[in-house]
Amino acid sequence: MTAPAPPPPGPLLGVWAHPDDETYLSGALMAVAAGLGARVVCLTATRGELGGPVPPGSPPGTTLGQLRVTELAEALDVLGVREQVLLGLPDGDCAGIPPAGPVHRIAEVIRAVSPAAVVTFGPDGFTGHPDHRAVSAWATAAFEQAAPAGARLLYAAATADRAAESRDVEEILGVRMNEGADAGEEDSPVVAEEVLAARLRPTGALLERKISALRAHASQTAGALAALGPDRYAAWAAEEAFVDYRTPRPPG
């Protein structure tokens, strides 16, 4: 006789601003949860229509927003995620939207999914992007309104060692992990390792799966892959870390 299988973990809900946010910051987490039999739902606020030009070779008449929604569906399929919610809000203008509407819509999804955990950006937006910051505020307000007892809200974060290891990539790509905030400042995603609620360092098949999902977001990732090479890109994109939103976050 064999012991009964443990029950799957509770549902996981991700709340993000643009297609590809979910894979960069929680792709391995979603894949692991889905592989354990958990319900995983990805909510995306915008279509990411301001994320650059439409790549050459796209079907005639295709807009970037349409392309990125297709890429999102392909990436989630790679990760084993079967449910997604697209709010269809304007890219680049989330900070200007009255929050009551988005908070209400996210709260409705939380009530429907009854997640054990919600993952999203911290107030810093991880990169400081105004859309990220707005989505963090919306998700937090919705969680406080609608989350079931015992649910956890986790903010994407990074440790000081990851920030240090990423400096060369940020210089090559012309991006910053924490625009407007350096490690040690209050408004930064960089935190001390001891306050982390979870940290994933995928390797092997799990890392390959995450990178395959990132490759599905080709309009956003092809340039970075070409600039860094596959090995450096994978090392840079692999790690995922989270802090509990109620935990004070001394800087890393």
Rank of each mutant, 00 (worst) to 15 (best):
M1G: 11
P4K: 06
A5E: 11
P11T: 01
L13A: 08
A17D: 06
H18M: 11
P19W: 08
T23P: 07
L25Q: 14
S26I: 02
A28P: 09
M30K: 04
V32T: 09
V32D: 10
A33G: 00
A33S: 15
A34M: 07
C42T: 13
L43T: 04
L43R: 05
A45Q: 04
G48T: 05
V54Q: 08
P55A: 08
P56H: 09
S58R: 10
P59W: 05
P60A: 15
P60D: 14
P60R: 14
P60L: 06
T63G: 15
T63V: 10
L67E: 11
R68G: 06
T70E: 13
E71V: 00
A73Y: 00
A73V: 06
A73W: 00
E74V: 02
A75E: 12
V78G: 07
V78A: 09
V81P: 02
V81W: 09
E83F: 02
E83M: 02
E83L: 00
Q84A: 08
V85G: 01
V85E: 03
L86W: 02
P90T: 10
I97T: 03
P98R: 11
P98I: 01
P99G: 06
A100K: 05
A100M: 02
R105H: 05
A107R: 05
V109R: 13
V109E: 14
V109T: 14
R111Y: 04
R111Q: 11
A116H: 08
T120H: 05
G122K: 10
G128C: 07
R133I: 10
V135K: 01
V135L: 10
A137F: 07
T140I: 00
E144D: 15
A146T: 10
A151G: 07
L154S: 04
L154P: 02
Y155S: 11
A156M: 01
T159M: 15
A160W: 13
A160T: 12
R162P: 01
A163C: 14
A164F: 01
A164Y: 00
E165H: 15
R167T: 15
V169M: 14
E170S: 13
E170V: 00
E171Q: 14
E171S: 15
I172D: 14
N178C: 13
E179H: 09
E179W: 08
A183V: 13
E185M: 15
D187I: 04
S188T: 14
V191Y: 15
E194I: 01
V195K: 01
L196Y: 01
L200H: 11
L200P: 11
P202Y: 03
P202V: 04
L206D: 06
R209S: 08
S212P: 02
A213Q: 11
L214H: 11
S219T: 07
Q220W: 06
A222D: 15
A222L: 06
G223E: 08
L225C: 00
A226D: 15
A226N: 12
G229Y: 11
D231P: 01
D231L: 09
R232M: 00
R232N: 00
R232C: 02
Y233C: 09
A234D: 07
E239D: 12
E240N: 14
A241H: 12
A241S: 15
F242H: 09
F242A: 07
V243L: 05
D244N: 06
D244C: 06
R246A: 13
R249N: 01
P251C: 09
